[in-house]
């Protein structure tokens, strides 16, 4: 089985998903699993959830210089998922031109396999792509 690039990326038996947790006390949604709420400090209130796969582009930068072996330029995006979680990822499917990328554009999460820089085999990872109808 393919390993996943980060612990919260789950292969899900052919239906990949992003693992998250929701606090039963304050409702905050986190990326990844956890036992205690960093926001309201409640203990034993965390329920595992599958994170939303739709959201909006909150912030971005275009990375032109990265670590050796990493293909540039690419868009490093911060997305507010529709369930309230916040996620960093690479935005694909749009021109990496800061002048044309729109804050607030709707995006969806897609899963794919890719070989990380310096690795010799593919890992399961995710990217953001423009939501249907938002494509430029």
């Amino acid at each position: 089985m393919t390993d996943t690039i980060l612990p919260f990326v789950k292969a899900g038996d052919g239906a990949p998903y992003l693992a998250g947790s929701r606090c039963g006390a304050c409702g905050e949604v986190f990326v990844g699993t956890r036992a205690t709420c960093a926001k309201c400090t409640a203990r034993d209130q965390m329920a595992p959830v599958h994170l939303a796969q739709t959201g909006k582009l909150y912030d971005f930068t275009v990375v032109y210089r990265s670590f050796p072996g990493v293909k540039v330029p690419f868009i490093d995006a911060i997305v507010d998922l529709d369930d309230g979680a916040h996620l960093k990822g690479t935005l694909m499917g749009v021109d990496p031109d800061p002048a044309t990328i729109q804050f607030g554009m709707p995006v969806t999460v897609e899963f794919r396999e890719a070989v990380p820089a310096g690795a010799d085999r593919p890992y399961l990872t995710f990217v953001f792509v423009p939501a249907e109808g938002a494509k430029s």
Binding site: T61, V70, D76, T90, P116, A117
Partner: peptide, 19 residues
């Protein structure tokens, strides 16, 4: 470990402060 750099956004200091 295996780096998510580029595949899952960027983890460089300049990218953080660019945001």
């Amino acid at each position: 470990g295996v780096s998510p750099e580029g595949l899952v956004g960027s983890y460089t200091m300049p990218a953080m402060f660019a945001h």
